[in-house]
Amino acid sequence: MSTPITAALVKELRERTGAGMGDCKKALEATGGDLDKAAEKLRMDGSAKADKKASRTAAEGVLAIAGNDDAVAIVELNSETDFVAKGDDFRTLARKAAEAAHAHKPADAAALSQLKAGDVTLDEHRRTLIAKLGENMTIRRFEIVESAGGPLVTYLHPGDKIGVVIAMEAGDVELARDLAMHIAAMSPRFLDAGEISADVLATERRIIEATVAQEQADARADSEKFASALQEMDAEKQNGTYAALSDDEKKSWDDDYAMIKKKLGGGFKPKPAEILAKMIDGRTAKFIGEITLLGQPFVKNPDLTVEKLLAERKAKVARFVRFGVGEGIEKQQVDFAAEVMAQAGIKA
């Protein structure tokens, strides 16, 4: 026997599932007014919609942080648009994911998605939101940072798009906060040179070596070009071309000749191998300084590296994590006008 589909019944199902009023009414009609079956149908419909949207790029989103003095979790939840990322429902899911990550310390994002937040798993919550809001969403990644004996500090930049967690072995909270903001601004990839893998260094050194070799080749080519230009101009002096010029033209010609001769200098002189090696070593060292926290100039005092700052303050960083929403995700370029025309069956 069917239960009458009343406004109160639709409202109750909506409050239970978070689905739209229209979807709740259709689910109740399809299940004869059975609330439990209607809720299950909405979950199944939401899963189907989520699967259809799974291939769509989700590169917007927010970060959420949860923790205590012992450990902190930072989670990235992605959506397709910033509009959805600003919504309360989306941010609630991000917060629940961070709380679950902190409480259970799962092995990876897939395991995190299967953890329960209330009566449903985070993945079920995510799928329900996809059905409700019409966008793909992904719990992309998380990290757990444990206390190292000193301050354990977090920083979320306004908008929740950049987040930092830093664990100090020694030092004060004020310094830790300054370093967290430095990390947010300067994006170091590693704590120190020891954390950089041999592959990363080898790749960068190959790039530097190729750049230096190209610079030498370009210098040789420029020298040959200037030498050829001077030969042509010397010929113009010999064949009478120069003599036929007006006084103003001669002045311009003389200026050009002097400029080219200055650029040519003594001609191309290849740098000795030992000099090239020192150049490559120097640029490699500069690269290491740029991508490591300890090697970077401190953002509040660029005359001081972070390493020297820590030494002065008798402080030590054990670990840090920096997330930026969407970093590393290739965003799709969408021509919205063309998309609307295509949906309307209009040919461009």
Results as ranks from 00 to 15, higher is better:
23 D>F: 09
25 K>D: 01
26 K>C: 03
27 A>T: 01
28 L>N: 03
28 L>S: 02
32 G>R: 03
34 D>Y: 04
38 A>G: 02
40 E>K: 13
41 K>S: 03
44 M>Q: 15
44 M>C: 00
44 M>A: 13
45 D>K: 01
46 G>E: 00
47 S>P: 03
49 K>P: 00
49 K>I: 06
51 D>C: 06
51 D>L: 09
51 D>H: 09
54 A>V: 02
54 A>R: 09
55 S>C: 01
56 R>S: 00
58 A>H: 00
58 A>P: 04
60 E>T: 02
61 G>A: 00
61 G>K: 05
63 L>G: 04
65 I>V: 15
66 A>E: 11
67 G>C: 08
67 G>H: 07
68 N>F: 09
70 D>E: 15
70 D>L: 12
70 D>C: 03
71 A>K: 15
72 V>E: 09
72 V>R: 02
76 E>P: 11
77 L>K: 12
78 N>L: 03
79 S>A: 12
80 E>K: 00
81 T>Q: 06
86 K>G: 06
87 G>F: 04
88 D>H: 13
88 D>T: 13
93 L>D: 08
93 L>K: 08
95 R>V: 03
96 K>E: 15
96 K>Q: 15
97 A>C: 10
99 E>D: 14
101 A>E: 11
101 A>F: 04
103 A>R: 13
104 H>N: 15
105 K>W: 09
105 K>H: 12
105 K>P: 02
109 A>K: 12
109 A>Y: 06
112 L>K: 09
114 Q>R: 14
115 L>F: 11
116 K>M: 10
118 G>I: 04
122 L>A: 03
123 D>P: 00
123 D>K: 14
123 D>T: 05
124 E>C: 10
125 H>M: 15
126 R>W: 06
129 L>W: 06
129 L>H: 02
131 A>C: 00
134 G>L: 09
142 F>E: 12
142 F>P: 10
145 V>I: 15
146 E>T: 12
146 E>S: 15
147 S>G: 13
149 G>L: 08
149 G>H: 05
150 G>F: 01
150 G>W: 02
150 G>S: 07
150 G>Q: 10
151 P>E: 13
